[in-house]
Design a protein around this nucleic acid. Structure first.
Lengths: 342, 342
DNA sequence: TTGTATGCGTTATCAT
DNA sequence: ATGATAACGCATACAA
């Protein structure tokens, strides 16, 4: 075996070894690694060769301890197995890894205290930057964090020196859905909202209400019922709506998962989709192309959100000023909606 | 404001400060922290008090550099947003965090080379242990890793000094499904398999074949068709099966996602579930209780797998010998299966 | 049982 | 442009 054990830690070379082999001082190697100062091309070349020969990789722990970058960024997600934010995590991972950074995922479970604790844990580990996927942290908390490191957060619009908020256009998304149904002749459009203390849910509901107003459709409060962004929640909400006896020919769920639950509730109640009621979701989860019938829904490129967030921290880390990022929403029309028939 | 900025790094105290405040040497504090040696109760008490007063937290980077634990374990998953393994990640996170460890999630994308690169990245970061969620790494590779740190892997049965494999009983799981259908009178049971180079898929197929043999049902190779564990794959496979004209009154998909796809394909073909064909999935994804109709499927407590894996690394880290872990499978009967009618 | 001294691998400060 | 040197915060071998 000419090949050495690739997993052997003790076989790994250090920056000093590289320096020695290249005939320069450790500081020079460090400078080349970090681009901290000008180095003559000759030395640079020999150092690079030495690095490759020894196949040297800097130790993140040592770097961190010495005051350099830990080469990691913390990511506060709410549930590591969220079907919605999962794609964002992928976007983040892809971008970060490509840049040599490691993501540190932690979950806050939509609980402000827990989120704070996780953030502290991340800072204890000296991450270089932090990405917050929505959640319940207050703006003030985020600002406080941003005093120490770059912070990018989704779910709100923010644009301060070291703090960038990336938001979807939730309102516009729901408007699209309402407009679509309205153009199909629907007038009685039900709405299953998310939990109202949830930023996304709030904005989506606003989108529903404002678009109805714009279209001059009567906004009947009985048509709005509360869910919690989960399948069971959507089921219960739809059930409640049906039991209440309100008349409706279309139904919008504030997210796809609730749409799935609502779909089942309607099935149990003998309501057909889309013959009896048109159904629209929000998020375009991968699964939504495979429901019965395939679901019309508002698409948000959540992968792109993750990737953008990661790119943004990287840029902030580079000292570049934050740039506003806009994520568009669009409507994916599938088979769960159709023209209204009396 | 009496409360200090909780995110201020420069406000954090060090082990030496704790030592000073407690009137002992740094080494004594270290010993108490790590349980490395006996310390008099008096000193121990005063140190603990000092730790609380200063609300000291050891710096993982310094620890790692000094040869101690980095307090982190690497987790190689295949896709960070996998609906199946997602729950396992949650189990891992829960257990690890409770023990003061941080998980480092990386994705291998079912690509051996990529998995190896990620593992090297983890070792470069000096994680204390590694959890591998299935994947394509060879046993030899895992053994090599285990020479340097505790390794727990899912998807295979392994029980070596520093290496533990936790496996589901895939075969038994599929047997359950076959038996269920057979007991309902079905004789022509189709099967959509996963990708054959995939360990899980291979074992599940074996379960199907062996149980048919045991039940003395003719094993018609035309009834088996290949998928790739995805919804589109399941759709294509079912479509192919239907087009081929083989007769079948029941269908087992090697995972729920393919069952979803197959469901849609049957819908398009005018086949009703369960009236015309009974459908069984595998995994019991959270969504499976909300399909139309709710899906009968084999349940594996994947959360528990993750939690067990995490507990196992922790134990190995503690120097305890690996204990074999068995994860049972059971059948969840919902509404996608019913008695055979000619 | 406890303290002292040294080193882990890197970056930063200060020279040159 | 480059090198020497001192940290960074902790664990550990050694001494007492």
């Amino acid at each position: 075996m000419s090949k050495k054990d690739p997993f052997n830690a003790s076989t790994r070379s250090t920056l000093s070894q590289v320096a020695e082999r290249a005939g320069v001082s450790p500081s020079t190697v460090s400078r080349i690694l970090n681009g901290t100062a000008q180095v003559s091309d000759a030395k640079k070349a020999s150092v690079i060769k030495a690095i490759e020969d020894l196949n040297f990789l800097p130790d993140p722990a040592a770097r961190s301890l010495a005051g350099g970058r830990a080469m990691s960024v913390g990511v506060l997600t709410q549930f590591i197995d969220s079907p919605f934010y999962g794609e964002a995590l992928r976007g983040i991972e892809d971008v970060l890894l490509k840049a040599g950074y490691a993501p540190l995922f932690v979950s806050g479970h939509w609980n402000e205290l827990e989120e704070k604790l996780r953030i502290q844990m991340l800072m204890q580990r000296k991450v270089d930057g932090i990405i917050v996927l929505t959640g319940k942290l207050q703006d003030a908390t985020l600002a406080q964090m941003a005093r120490h490191l770059p912070v990018v957060v989704t779910g709100r619009k923010l644009l301060k020196p070291n703090l960038l908020g990336i938001d979807f256009d939730h309102q516009e998304g729901v408007c699209l859905a309402v407009r679509h149904l309205h153009s199909l002749g629907h007038q009685r459009i039900g709405y299953i909202s998310g939990p109202l203390d949830h930023a996304d849910a709030d904005q989506r509901l606003k989108g529903y209400q404002s678009e109805l107003k714009r279209l001059k459709v009567r906004n009947d409060p009985k048509l709005v019922v509360n869910g919690d962004f989960s399948e069971p929640g959507g089921y219960r909400a739809a059930h409640q709506l049906i039991q209440s006896g309100v008349e409706f020919s279309a139904l919008i769920a504030a997210n796809d998962q609730m749409a799935y639950g609502a779909r089942l509730a309607m099935y149990r109640a003998g309501l057909r989709v889309p013959e009896d009621v048109s159904l629209v979701g929000f998020d375009d989860l991968p699964h939504s192309a495979y429901t019965l019938p395939p679901l019309t829904t508002v698409r948000q490129s959540i992968y792109e959100v993750g990737a953008s967030a990661a790119q943004a921290v990287l840029q902030l880390l580079d000292g570049q000023p934050p740039r506003l990022i806009q994520i568009p929403a669009d409507l994916v029309v599938r088979e769960s909606t159709r023209r209204y028939r009396a």
